[in-house]
Computed example of a mutant assay.
Amino acid sequence: MTKKCLELKGVSKNFQGFRLNHISFTLPQGYIMGLVGSNGAGKTTTIRLILNMLEKNEGEILVFGKDNVLHEKAVKQEIGVVFDHMFYVDSWTVRDTEKAISIFYDDWRHNTFDDMIRRFCLPQNKKVGDLSRGMQMKLMLACAFSHNAKLLILDEPTSGLDPVTRDEFLEILQDYIKDGERSVLFSTHITSDLEQVADYITFINQGNMIFTGSMEDLINSYRLVKGRPQDLTPELEKNIAGLRKTNMGFEGLITANEAAQYGHCILDTATIDDIIIYMSKGGIKK
Rank of each mutant, 00 (worst) to 15 (best):
K3V: 00
K9A: 03
Q16F: 09
F18G: 08
N21R: 14
H22W: 00
S24Y: 02
S24A: 02
L27W: 07
V36G: 05
S38P: 14
N39G: 10
G42E: 10
R48S: 10
L54C: 09
I61L: 06
V69N: 12
V69Q: 14
V69S: 08
E78V: 01
V82F: 03
V82E: 11
H85C: 03
S91E: 13
D96Q: 03
Y105C: 07
R109I: 04
N111Q: 15
D114H: 03
R118V: 11
F120G: 13
L122Y: 04
K126N: 02
V128S: 07
S132G: 11
R133W: 00
M135P: 08
K138G: 06
K138T: 06
M140H: 15
L141N: 11
S146M: 00
A149H: 00
I153V: 14
L154R: 02
E156I: 00
E156W: 05
V164D: 03
F169S: 12
L173W: 03
Q174S: 15
I177P: 12
K178Y: 05
E181I: 07
E181D: 09
L185C: 09
T191F: 14
D193F: 12
L194S: 08
T202P: 10
T202A: 15
F203N: 11
F203K: 08
I204Q: 05
I210V: 15
G213K: 06
V225D: 03
K226C: 11
K226R: 14
D231Y: 00
I240K: 00
A241G: 04
G252Q: 01
L253C: 10
N257L: 07
A259K: 04
Q261H: 12
G263C: 06
C265N: 11
I266M: 07
I266C: 00
I266D: 02
L267F: 13
D274T: 12
I277A: 05
K281M: 09
K286V: 08
